[in-house]
Design a protein around this nucleic acid. Structure first.
Lengths: 129, 129
DNA sequence: GCTCGATGATTACGCCTGTAGTCATTGCGA
DNA sequence: TCGCAATGACTACAGGCGTAATCATCGAGC
């Protein structure tokens, strides 16, 4: 089992993910800083960001480190873990847990470019000498 | 663009998907028949299944063909299209649209068994002669 | 013809989510 | 020291989702 596989219960929603992304990109930011980044792209108000930050702290996805009278927010779960969890969930839901089926589907539906195929092939070679 | 890419707006939720699955498996079933299948696995009441069927018809995901005083339900969107849509959405959300990254992630996080890797390898060979 | 059971439609309701306003506090500058 | 501006906490609220009860209807059998 991986550490940082803290997939403990609480789901992270799409809006929440947007907030996580900016903190994964650079941890220890204030609410205002996070907003500066995400409020432009998603057209949110600062209040919205604060709510999402609170919910994420409540869910144990973020740590809030006091810094004077405000907080610096830092992810407690790694992006790796989140991405892994979501991927596994999708594979489970849509392909009965068979990840190869997902790859097959992507390939057949032309979601994979020739370059993608190259990349995957290289990956396979690397994974087993 | 594929036909049956009727990804027209309306999202299908997880509960709804369970209903779709049994109709993808065998189309033209009544509410009672669908329930017979899904009510055991998900522990639902017939009423719940009927609600989900109604919502799916409303969303344009199912056709309701009158059969006497009841309906036979049939998927209007192909499972392929649904699976493709969901997969693309995930790749977009988590990997910035780069499907190869998803495969890489699955491989590195050991979500892919040796058998999976074999299968993918065979797939690649098949995809390009 | 009339009642009963099956069936779809309607309504319900609590929780989650997205989005945001307001309130209370508190550190900082004047 | 005192008021202000920044900040997190609390509250709000509409819409979607999961789950289900109830209602209205209609066909079949007596």
């Amino acid at each position: 089992m991986n550490p940082s596989d803290d997939n403990s219960g609480e789901r992270i929603t799409e809006a929440e993910q947007a907030v996580m992304e900016v903190l994964w990109d650079r941890p220890r930011q204030t609410a205002a800083e996070v907003c500066e980044d995400v409020c432009t792209t998603r057209d949110w108000s600062l209040a919205t960001v604060k709510t999402l930050l609170s919910r994420l702290v409540q869910k144990g996805a973020l740590a809030a480190e006091p810094d004077g009278r405000r907080f610096l927010y830092t992810p407690l779960i790694a992006r790796e873990a989140y991405v892994g969890g979501e991927s596994r969930r999708l594979v489970e839901r849509l392909f009965g847990g068979r990840a190869a089926s997902l790859v097959a589907h992507l390939a057949e539906s032309e979601a994979l470019s020739a370059a993608d195929l190259d990349e995957i092939e290289a990956l396979l070679k690397e994974l087993r000498p």
